[in-house]
């Protein structure tokens, strides 16, 4: 489904701030894989996601989605294949536009936009049903501006938008990190539900070891631009936080140093 071959990304090349964010990373996601991606600060997790989404061009390597070489495709062209939810709840929606208008934008992802109405009557009913499945009462606020919603509501809406047209890959970039624990759990629960129902191939970045272990069928750990652990199946199900930290120490030769990961 997703095949990343030897991709490298260097930030600020030729300056004293030069940073090798990704160093010949290889990664293959099979159809239906739900991969959690964890690592310390600056490990390259978000960079990897942004390279897959096309936000950054890569310096070397190739990216295939669904067997198609997308390395040179711009971000908006790849969008038809990719659903994304960001860390910042403000980022995934247009705050001055209505809930239904945001959904209508997502409904046309990857399609040619013409001078037809931006939202139709049938769509509205469809959205109302989908929103009521979130259980947040948004189905009665279709024309409300998204800017009026709480962070959790916005993330839930963004999640719905990302999966409205079935994405070939769903990219979740620490999408619960900015929420309080209770809201984060609710959004994660919704994510699980969407991923399971749609059998979506998913790559989820998280800084929370518990979440990384609990969710998905495969866990990948990154360190300094490399993938250092790739645990799946039976083995993943038996992981514990202590066990994971120990394996990190062996693989990287360092102590796991991410306060956010340890404290949460």
């Amino acid at each position: 489904m997703l095949k990343v071959q030897a991709i490298s990304k260097r930030f600020n090349p030729g300056t004293i701030n030069e940073k090798m964010a990704l160093d010949r990373v290889d990664l293959t996601l099979d159809e239906g894989d739900f991969v959690t991606l964890i690592g310390g600060n600056g490990a390259g997790k978000s960079t990897l996601l942004n390279c897959v989404a096309g936000v950054y061009g890569i310096d070397e390597g190739t990216i295939f989605i669904d067997g198609k070489d997308v390395t040179r495709l711009s971000e908006f062209k790849r969008a038809g294949m990719i659903g994304r939810v960001f860390q910042d709840p403000m980022m995934g929606t247009a705050s001055d536009m209505g809930i239904e208008e945001n959904l209508a934008l997502a409904y046309r992802r990857g399609q040619f936009r013409s001078l037809r109405w931006g939202i139709t009557h049938d769509e509205r009913n469809h959205y109302r049903e989908l929103l009521s499945s979130l259980g947040l009462g948004l189905e009665n606020r279709l024309s409300n501006k998204v800017g009026l919603l709480s962070g959790g509501q916005r993330q839930a809406l963004t999640l719905l938008m990302a999966t409205l047209i079935r994405p070939r890959i769903l990219l979740l970039d620490e999408h619960t990190a900015a929420l309080d624990p209770k809201t984060a759990d609710k959004v994660l629960e919704l994510s699980d539900q969407f991923i399971e129902e749609g059998k979506l191939t998913t790559l989820m970045v998280t800084h929370n070891m518990r979440h990384a272990i609990k969710h998905g069928n495969r866990l990948i750990m990154m360190h300094e631009g490399h993938i250092i652990l790739d645990i799946r199946g039976e083995e993943k199900q038996q992981l514990t936080v202590e066990n994971l930290m120990e394996r990190f120490g062996k693989a990287s030769g360092e102590e796991f140093a991410n306060d956010r990961a340890l404290l949460s």
Partner: peptide
């Protein structure tokens, strides 16, 4: 109110979101 018009509004409001929704 058309699809293109909505795409322009989204671009001005949140370009990052617009690109993620496949808008040039």
């Amino acid at each position: 109110g058309t699809e293109i018009g909505c795409a322009i509004r989204a671009t001005g409001n949140n370009p990052q979101m617009a690109r993620a929704q496949g808008i040039n």
